[in-house]
Design a protein around this nucleic acid. Sequence first.
DNA 1: CACGGTGTTCCAATCGATTGCTGAATCGCG
DNA 2: CGCGATTCAGCAATCGATTGGAACACCGTG
Lengths: 330, 330
Amino acid sequence: MGDVSIYDVAKVAGVHSSTVSRAFSRPEAVKPETRERILRIAGEMGYRVNSLGQALRRGSSNLVPLIVPDITNPFYGELAKSVAAAAGLRGYQVVLCLTEGDADETYRFLDAMSAHLSPFAIVAPSTRIDAGVLERTALARRTVIIDRVPQGLQVPTVFIDNRLGVKLALDHLLELGHRRIAYLTGTVGTYSAEVRVEAYRALVADHGIEPVVIRGGYSLAATERGAAEFLAIDPRPTAVIASNDLAAFGFISRLAEHGVRVPEDVSVTGFDGVPIGDNFNPGITTVAQPFDELGALAVAVAERFADDGSIVHEVLVPTLLVRRSTRRLL
Amino acid sequence: MGDVSIYDVAKVAGVHSSTVSRAFSRPEAVKPETRERILRIAGEMGYRVNSLGQALRRGSSNLVPLIVPDITNPFYGELAKSVAAAAGLRGYQVVLCLTEGDADETYRFLDAMSAHLSPFAIVAPSTRIDAGVLERTALARRTVIIDRVPQGLQVPTVFIDNRLGVKLALDHLLELGHRRIAYLTGTVGTYSAEVRVEAYRALVADHGIEPVVIRGGYSLAATERGAAEFLAIDPRPTAVIASNDLAAFGFISRLAEHGVRVPEDVSVTGFDGVPIGDNFNPGITTVAQPFDELGALAVAVAERFADDGSIVHEVLVPTLLVRRSTRRLL
DNA sequence: CACGGTGTTCCAATCGATTGCTGAATCGCG
DNA sequence: CGCGATTCAGCAATCGATTGGAACACCGTG
């Protein structure tokens, strides 16, 4: 089955192996009737090009590593889906690399995949990118980051306008009459996460509102702590902007266990806009990222970077998705 | 950086390239001091073995395709996580293949990955496996299925005891005093899904209970239809066994929008035991699959199958995870 | 008939690593 | 001191595909 090489096909077709190769990779360079015969025989013999031999010779494979901290987080799930779709369209295969939040793993994966001659890599970091280490990895000049990066780091990035996202959520809540609006953090230490809190602080100040930041997260312990922190605040906020959907889910769930209902008692907004938010109880009002665009741009930007070294920073615009977790303050 | 080959190292170290190769792949075959010098020089030069050359020569790569319908479904997310962990431990890299429910894609991915000389493949199907097509793919004799398969299909499998899972949920509800217990389906057409409904039908019959099957799903439309079907039933069931967590989430969410509360008005159990169920509102009582075991066994079984062709069927035992979505019938 | 031009195929080197075989050096032992 | 055994390293073929350049046939033209 998989053990037919161009040599085998060449022998049967009575031509040289290089002709078989060209029949596939440069069709116009071989006489139509010869080509057809080769293709037919190859088909009959069950020949399939060996990507390895091809990649070795060409010096570049079609394997694109997607490095994420945690695939069970729906945000990364959506990201993986869109990247895989965009990559597939261009003939790439996504190699899934899970770091579990260990930054060193990122660089290890990058090294491992450069040994597979990956043309480029896509990284959704869980922490701020370490410029020094990144420079040292083999794929350094061919990696795109799905996050903001510190000034001066020569790496293309793709991410949403976080400030606008927070503004969207805040304006929505303000319009509903809320004034005591708190912010719930997640656990990840990405640059984006920091940008979001800072945006919250700045925007809220513009309205003369005192910022209140609650530490949230995903684990049972973190969500419980978040709920406890919230319940201890006096006077209690009437609305909460969560840094991401997952944190909002856990927060709402813990609140419910304490008899605090959403949106009746508190309005809560999520962030990311993962589809599962539709199936949450209540449907979560959230700042939605354009995932399809995100994946497509990540691949396109990475391809360009690898190709001509051009470093661009694509900033996507989020939209507000109003569902049922927010309501007008009575 | 990535452009150092064994020849470069060999030249600097003053030895033959084959010695460099052996220094890495068969350390005992080269004199300790020679080996150390080679390793040191290789390190200084930033040499990294080129997996492609290696795989081409060996006739087998370390790339393991994991083929799943939808990575944003938390079940497959958990599966991917555990498979990636188990694979990583043995030096494999998981290649993520997303079929979006298109069965043909499965076979296409299998073919594509056999061109990468994958040692074996792991498939979580979205439909019943097509024996005929599977046989025809190159990786056929090296694929393990995460699901039940029809009798007579010569393929190793890893999956949980679905009947026991349903029994766990049913017994729990019976013990809580429920008698009108319905079943909510998902949308996927896997063998496991079928087995679960049938188990429900059979088990419920043992208790003289009339089976009621509601068609659920993940999409907004499907969850709404499920809720509508449920609300139309008279007399209304007091408990529902969902075929999977995601379906349960959407169902509960739509029910809430109709003023029906869980668990106050209906008890609902999920199936799969995805961690996000903890952050759902309310925390979902569910039949938990042992994910870590699942991933580890999938890799182990696939490895054995590829190695000596032995076909085993591992059946894992699920456990009941009691949270807050079920309560005693008053 | 000779010659330049065009179209098609072949030859052979190459990508990077592995491995059976061979030859050389070293060791143990009588 | 000499001989066989053992250890270690070099040689060269090989995995499968690609590609620059050579070779060949055939064309039309002068």
